[in-house]
Design a protein around this nucleic acid. Structure first.
Length: 585
RNA sequence: GCGCCCGUAGCUCAGUUGGAUAGAGCGCCUGGCUACGAACCAGGAGGUCGGGAGUUCGAAUCUCUCCGGGCGCGCCA
C-alpha cells in the first residue's frame, strides 16, 4: 500500500507544471508514512514541506499543486492538504478489502517480501565458548539471533546461520584439566580444586562420563599431581598455578591422555549446548570450529595477506597488525612472542573466510561487552581489501534476573549461575522468547521470573496468544452451532465491515508488511512484538464490541474473514518470533 | 582518561530516514460477563522527553556541552 502511494506521489511530481521544481524529483526523497492520528487519514507525505524551499513556494501552495497533479487511483478515496503542508491520503474501504483478500490468498506467506533480493547474509550468533553451559545472557542472544535470521529471511535475504565454536586455546586446556581433576575425585583421590578452574557442577558429569569410558586408566595419585606446584590463589598466582597443573597433567597422563580428556569434555559440552538451543527453537546451518579454521591454514593465509600488504611489523618478539591505520585505537598482536596466534588472528581469518564464501553482508550478534572488538575486526577486513561496512555488529545488552523484585546475583565462574536451561524449564520457551524479544536489544533487560511465570493480566506474554486462541475458539463455536465459514462470500461482503472497530482491525492488519520490513531493516525484533500487541488489542476490542457469529450470513462471513485474517497474521508474526500460536490455552 | 550503549508517566518500556495534540503495559480510580473464552474490553488521573545551548518551517529524534547510569579499553578467549 505504502509503495503504491509513493509511486503515485512520484507520478504527481513528474506531472507538475514545468519550472515548478528546479530538478527532477528522486524517488528516494519521497516518503509516505502511516499517520499517527486517523483524523489525518491513513497515510501522509511531507514532500511539499521538503521541496518547498527548492521550489520557492509556500509548502501549502506546493502541496495543493501536487494534489492537483495526482493521478486517479482506486486505492485513494480522497486527499487533503493539512497542517504546515502535509498531504493526507484517505484510502477507500476497497483498498483494505483487497488487503484482507491478500492475507487469505497468501496465508503464511503474507507479509514476506523480496526487499533483500537474495543478498547473501551470514548471521553469526551465540557462539558461546564450550567451556560451560549457556546462561541467561546467551539466551537473549539466541532469541535475538534466531529471530533476526527469521526476519531477514522473510524479507528476502539469503541467510546462513552460524555458530562459531571457540574450541582452541588455553580455555580448552583449563576445561580439560578441570574435568580430569573431577575424574580423579571420582576415582577416590583427594585434591584441592584450582581457583582458576571451571568450578561449576556441570564439570562433574563430564568426569563421570570419562570414568565410565576409561575406568581408572587416567588415575594418578594425588601426591604426584600436587608435588611441587606453586601456591594457588588467594595467596599465590592462580594463573601460574593452573598453568603448572596443566603441565603436570600432560606429564602424568601424556599428550594423548590429555587430548582424550579434552575431546570428551568438548564433545559433551557441545552436545549439551546444541540440545539446549534446539529445544529453545534456535537452529544453525553450520557449527564452525576455530580449530578447523586453524587446521585449514586460513589463519596463515590471512596473515600472509596482511604481510603482503605491509600491514604487519615485529616488536618485542611479537607480530603486530597496524590496526590504527584502519580506525582502531591501538595496534593488535596477531602472533605472540611464544609463537602462538592470538584469538584476534583467528577472528579476522574467520571473517575473511566468510567473505570468501561469498557472503556480501556479515552480521555478528555479540554480548555488549564485545564492543571493543568491532573496530579491530573491521580494521582487519579493510586491511585485507574487504569493504569495512560489510561487517555489522549488533550488541546485545545484559540481562538481569529478578525474582519478585529481588535481583538474582550472577557471577561468571561462580558455581551458582542461572543457566538458560533452568530459565526455560521454569518459565517455558514461549514466555522466555517473548520476554527476551520484547525490549530493544540495546537496552539492558530486567527479566522477572515471577512475572514471566504468572498467569495474570500483569503478564504480557499471553495477550497475543490469547487473541489467536480466541479466533480458534470462535471457529469451534461456529462448528458447534453447525455453521460453516464461506470464505468467498466473506471476502466479497467486506463492504459490510464499516464499524469503527472493523476499520481499526483492517487498518492494523494492513500494517503487518510494513512492520515486518521495519523490524528486519532495523534489526529490531521488538518492533514486531509491539506491532503484534497492537493487532491483538484491535482484535480484543472488536471481540468485545461485536458479535461475529450473527444471523446475517454475509455479515457473519465477512466478520469471520476479518478475524481469520488477524489470526493468520498473528500466527505469521509469532512464528517469526519463535513463539507458539496455540489454538487453545 | 579514552571509546561504545543508555537517560521519556510512580514502575517497566515504545516512539519509523526530524513531522501534526509524546504513546503502551503494569500500578491507581470508575464501569462492563443469563452474547462467540473476563488470560478480555471501555473510560479517567498521571510528563520540564536528565539540564542547557545550537541547527530549521518543525527536535524525544540531529550537533555541542554538562550531569547521571551500564559496559569495554590484555602478547585472555
Amino acid at each position: 500500500m505504502k509503495q503504491q502511494l509513493e509511486q503515485l506521489v512520484l507520478a504527481a511530481l513528474n506531472n507538475l507544471p514545468g519550472g515548478l521544481l528546479p530538478e527532477a524529483p528522486s524517488p528516494a526523497a519521497i516518503v509516505v508514512e502511516r499517520t499517527r492520528d486517523t483524523q489525518h487519514g491513513d497515510f501522509a507525505t511531507n514532500v511539499a514541506l521538503r521541496l518547498a524551499k527548492a521550489a520557492r513556494r509556500k509548502p501549502r501552495e506546493l502541496a495543493e499543486a501536487i494534489v492537483a497533479a495526482l493521478p486517479v487511483n482506486p486505492l485513494v478515496a480522497r486527499t487533503e492538504v493539512a497542517g504546515a503542508g502535509f498531504i493526507n491520503f484517505f484510502l477507500t474501504t476497497n483498498a483494505y478489502a483487497q488487503e484482507l483478500a491478500t492475507v487469505h490468498e497468501l496465508g503464511e506467506r503474507y507479509g514476506r517480501s523480496n526487499l533483500g533480493q537474495g543478498q547473501r547474509v551470514m548471521l553469526e550468533y551465540v557462539s558461546a565458548n564450550p567451556t560451560g553451559p549457556l546462561h541467561v545472557g546467551h539466551g537473549r542472544q539466541a532469541a535475538y539471533g534466531a529471530t533476526l535470521a527469521n526476519l531477514l529471511g522473510a524479507v528476502g535475504f539469503d541467510v546462513a546461520r552460524e555458530y562459531y565454536i571457540n574450541d582452541a586455546g588455553r580455555q580448552m586446556d583449563i576445561l580439560a584439566v578441570s574435568t580430569w581433576l573431577r575424574y580423579l575425585e571420582i576415582c577416590g583421590e583427594e585434591l584441592p580444586f584450582p581457583a582458576n578452574g571451571y568450578r561449576g557442577d556441570y564439570v562433574r558429569p563430564l568426569a563421570q562420563k570419562l570414568h565410565t569410558k576409561l575406568g581408572e586408566k587416567l588415575r594418578r595419585p594425588a601426591t604426584a599431581v600436587l608435588a611441587n606446584l606453586p601456591v594457588d590463589a588467594p595467596e599465590g598466582d592462580k594463573e601460574a598455578y593452573i598453568d603448572a597443573l596443566m603441565k603436570r597433567a600432560r606429564e602424568l597422563i601424556g599428550a594423548d591422555g590429555f587430548r582424550e580428556v579434552l575431546e570428551l569434555s568438548l564433545a559433551e559440552m557441545l552436545t549439551g549446548i546444541q540440545a539446549d538451543l534446539a529445544e529453545f527453537g534456535v537452529v544453525f546451518d553450520r557449527w564452525y570450529s576455530e580449530r578447523a579454521l586453524s587446521d585449514s591454514g586460513a589463519i596463515d593465509r590471512a596473515l600472509a595477506r596482511l604481510e603482503a600488504q605491509g600491514r604487519l611489523y615485529r616488536q618485542e618478539g611479537a607480530l603486530w597488525f597496524r590496526a590504527t591505520e584502519f580506525g582502531d585505537e591501538k595496534d593488535r598482536v596477531v602472533v605472540r612472542e611464544n609463537g602462538q596466534k592470538t584469538y584476534f588472528a583467528s577472528d579476522i581469518a574467520y571473517h575473511l573466510e566468510k567473505r570468501e564464501l561469498g557472503f556480501e553482508r556479515l552480521i555478528d550478534v555479540l554480548g555488549a561487552d564485545h564492543h571493543g572488538y568491532i573496530a579491530r575486526v573491521r580494521a582487519g577486513l579493510i586491511a585485507m581489501g574487504e569493504p569495512g561496512d560489510c561487517l555489522e555488529v549488533n550488541l546485545i545488552q545484559f540481562v538481569s534476573l529478578f525474582r519478585g523484585g529481588e535481583k538474582i546475583a550472577m557471577g561468571k565462574r561462580e558455581a551458582q549461575f542461572v543457566t538458560l536451561r533452568q530459565l526455560r524449564e521454569e518459565v517455558g520457551n514461549d514466555a522466555c522468547r517473548f520476554f527476551y524479544l520484547m525490549r530493544s536489544h540495546d537496552q539492558p533487560l530486567d527479566f522477572d521470573l515471577e512475572l514471566a511465570k504468572s498467569r495474570t493480566n500483569e503478564n504480557p506474554v499471553y495477550y497475543i496468544q490469547y487473541a489467536h486462541a480466541r479466533v480458534a475458539s470462535v471457529m469451534k463455536q461456529l462448528a458447534a452451532r453447525e455453521l460453516s465459514f464461506d470464505r468467498a462470500e466473506g471476502l466479497t461482503s467486506t463492504e459490510l465491515l464499516v464499524g469503527s472497530q472493523e476499520q481499526a482491525v483492517l487498518n492494523s492488519l494492513a500494517r503487518y508488511p510494513e512492520a515486518l520490513e521495519q523490524s528486519a531493516v532495523n534489526r529490531a525484533p521488538h518492533t514486531l512484538v509491539h506491532y503484534l500487541r497492537e493487532l491483538a488489542n484491535a482484535l480484543h476490542t472488536y471481540y468485545n464490541a461485536e458479535q461475529f457469529i450473527v444471523g446475517d450470513a454475509k455479515l457473519r462471513n465477512a466478520r469471520l474473514a476479518l478475524v481469520l485474517g488477524v489470526q493468520q497474521v498473528l500466527r505469521n508474526g509469532l512464528t517469526l518470533l519463535g513463539v507458539s500460536a496455540p489454538e487453545s490455552m
